[in-house]
């Protein structure tokens, strides 16, 4: 087991190294000048040159990459070209917001996807099966930014049920930052008002970001459950006269949990990085909107930082899922 984990961690480091190399190569393949991007349209040539020297952009590509990797080994992701801030500090600031939004989206995806998937499986082949699947698909089948703008237009502007963009109301100042998660910080500050405000602000972006995953989860729950339901021991249990609902809850769902775990892992991993557009529309100060702003201004050290953190999150979540999978299912051995 320990050897397995070590092997996986080593592979993860290799994959992350590949991610940095790919990100570095791509960002240098872009036909644009990061100095001009950072200093703006009216900047004079001398300023640009000075900027290049200060940020080491005048060196050759291998040297730049070497410098970058050397710093990275000490945990330093470098300096943003656009803001001249430490990227490590930037990511520390922006990551919790994305984590909070992602957790919210996962909650919504589970709340919607799991019941609909179970319903569809139990009603397999009947009208409700189809209806449940179509309903689950609706949210994730349109461009996410359109859905987000529409949701704000309807639920915030017209109906007034839910707050607008951002993590908090403009009139309530944020609590002191401890975890960076607004809800946790509100609890730490013993501020129920901010807690409720923060939760309310999570609903629309969480639903919009979770919509696509909800459809996925519905489908996977349905097929996992169908597979289990058709297996002999369930049939036996049913034949023995166990009541339908108990069979489902006791046996089927327990066994269907394994494939669902896999889905959950990749879902969580892709959500973290998929928040780019949702965060942009909802003015959510997370790594998704940070990635967009950085990418648009060709701030490639920042983009590489985000990429690396997203890659790390993705790999870690998948490792945890695999480990959980193996500890649930004795038939799987670590190899």
């Amino acid at each position: 087991m320990l050897i397995y984990i070590l092997r996986r961690l080593a592979l993860m480091v290799f994959v992350l190294w590949g991610v940095t190399l790919a990100a570095f190569l791509i960002s240098h393949a872009l036909p644009a000048d990061p100095a001009a991007a950072a200093l703006g349209n009216n900047a004079r040539e001398a300023q640009l040159q000075e900027f290049r020297v200060r940020n080491g952009l005048d060196k050759s590509l291998p040297v730049q990459y070497g410098v970058y990797m050397g710093r990275l080994l000490t945990g330093d992701l470098g300096t943003s070209l656009r803001t001249q801030n430490s990227i490590t500090a930037d990511l520390k600031q922006f990551f919790p917001a994305t984590l909070e939004l992602t957790l919210g989206a996962v909650v919504f995806a589970v709340l919607i996807g799991l019941p609909l998937g179970i319903l569809a499986a139990l009603q397999h082949g009947k009208a409700l099966d189809l209806l449940a699947r179509i309903f689950a698909l609706l949210g994730g089948a349109t461009p996410v930014y359109w859905l987000a703008i529409l949701a704000l237009n309807v639920f915030h502007e017209r109906l007034g049920w839910l707050p607008g963009p951002g993590r908090l109301d403009a009139y309530s100042l944020a609590p002191p930052v401890h975890s960076g998660l607004m809800t946790v910080d509100a609890v730490l500050a013993r501020d129920p008002q901010v807690l409720v405000d923060g939760l309310r602000h999570l609903i629309l972006p969480g639903l919009v970001l979770g919509a696509f995953s909800a459809a996925l989860l519905t489908r996977m729950t349905r097929s996992a459950l169908l597979e289990v339901l058709s297996q002999d021991y369930i049939r036996t249990a049913r034949a023995k006269g166990l009541k339908g609902s108990r069979v489902i809850w006791r046996h089927a769902l327990k066994n269907a949990a394994l494939p669902l775990l896999t889905v959950f892992g990749s879902l969580f991993g892709s959500l973290l990085t998929g928040a780019v557009l949702t965060e942009t529309i909802f003015s959510w100060p997370g790594i998704g909107s940070y990635a967009t702003t950085s990418a648009i201004s060709l701030d490639f050290p920042a983009v590489m930082g985000v990429t690396l953190v997203a890659g790390l999150a993705y790999s870690l979540v998948n490792l945890i899922v695999d480990l959980a999978y193996a500890s649930f299912d004795p038939r799987i051995s670590f190899s």
Binding site: L11, F14, V15, L16, G18, V19, A22, A23, I26, S27, A29, L30, P31, A32, S270, T273, G274, V276, L277, A291, A295, V303, V306, T307, A310, G311, Y314, S315
Partner: peptide
Amino acid sequence: MRLTDIFLAFPSLILAMAISAA
């Protein structure tokens, strides 16, 4: 497969953005 992993771990929209921009 490690190459595949690298592509999977890379945030897809950022990758697509970068490729399209390049």
